[in-house]
């Protein structure tokens, strides 16, 4: 269980990343966080493992209070909180297996890490983790030789090697193509269920959040503005979170063939600067809820497309 009590994050430059966050995330929950970029999604996730220190309030993971001031306590916490990243963050020049073994650092004496001489048990565990994500045959290949989807699987295996209670994922599939994104998310969901982990995932694409998460948290300007089960996260609610109507960019383009035409449409009309034209053209709206939006913001969106 992860508990935020009135948590603020103020960055050294004075920017307030999080404002008075109150949240409780239960053991075994799969939470999707949505919001525009700059809304504080990454900050929220990084506060949990102390990569971004929170400045006031109280934040605890299970029984442990996150203490950004004590490096030792942070390390102990992080050993139980795994994290995967948008750009995978593997060490490219070493093997897949060694990347996974990186996840065992907190349980490995420093001298063993220095020599790269890991225990046989750790290696066996690493192999099991690679098995779970289905790329055990790549164990001795260089991480950089793998495709994006495979690299993210290695990153997931690295987290599994930590034997974590919580997994944080910061835009885990934003760098992947739509079919691969779905496959990686499916694996992530399956593993999360099998191991009963708590999982917090930032997602850029709303449809991914809806298909894979149990619960959705919407953020805007460092605050939680929506928190509820997937069923409650309707388009109208999410548009309220985004403070604008939804566009094709908010969903993964996998099974939305219309998006290509849309883009073409927008570029075709753009040079004419014919704003009025878009208003009576409902096809250009990515949302299937055209009733609730304001034409002005629509045009701005289309111009951006």
């Amino acid at each position: 269980m992860i508990t935020f009590e009135n948590v603020d994050v103020v960055f050294p430059n004075g920017f307030q990343g999080l404002k008075g966050i109150d949240l409780t995330i239960n053991q075994g929950e799969f939470v999707g966080i949505v919001g525009l970029s700059g809304a504080g999604k990454s900050t929220l996730i990084r506060a949990v493992n102390g990569l971004v220190p929170y400045t006031s309030g109280s934040l605890s993971v299970g029984e442990t209070v996150v203490d950004p001031k004590s490096k030792t306590k942070l390390r102990r916490l992080r050993s139980k909180v795994g994290m995967i990243f948008q750009s995978f963050n593997l060490v490219n020049r070493i093997s897949v297996l060694n990347n996974v073994l990186t996840g065992r650092s907190a349980y490995t004496p420093t001298w063993r890490s220095m020599l790269g001489w890991y225990r046989a048990a750790d290696k066996e565990l690493a192999f099991q983790c690679l098995e779970r994500v289905g790329i055990v045959e790549k164990a001795y290949e260089r991480a950089s030789s793998l495709s994006g989807g495979q690299q993210q699987r290695v990153a997931i295996a690295r987290v599994l090697a930590q034997d974590p209670e919580v997994m944080l994922a910061d835009e885990p599939v934003a760098a992947l193509d739509p079919p691969t994104a779905h496959r990686v998310m499916r694996d992530l969901r399956r593993i999360q269920r099998e191991l009963g982990m708590t999982c917090i995932v930032n997602m850029h694409h709303l449809d991914l959040a809806r298909s894979y998460a149990d619960r959705i948290i919407g953020m805007r300007a460092g605050e939680v503005v929506f928190d509820g089960p997937v069923a409650e996260a309707t388009d109208a609610v999410i548009e309220e979170v985004y403070q604008r109507s939804m566009t094709a960019e908010d969903v993964v383009a996998d099974d939305v063939p219309v998006s290509v035409e849309e883009t073409a449409d927008a570029t075709e009309h753009d040079p004419d600067n014919d704003d009025a034209h878009h208003d009576d053209d409902p096809a250009v709206l990515g949302s299937d809820d055209p009733g609730s939006n304001d034409p002005g913001s629509n045009n701005a969106e289309q111009a951006r497309l």
Partner: peptide
């Protein structure tokens, strides 16, 4: 990768 290593709880030397 450095941030990733930090997130696994590795110490500075590791």
């Amino acid at each position: 990768p450095i941030e990733a290593a930090d997130s696994t709880g590795a110490n500075l030397t590791q």
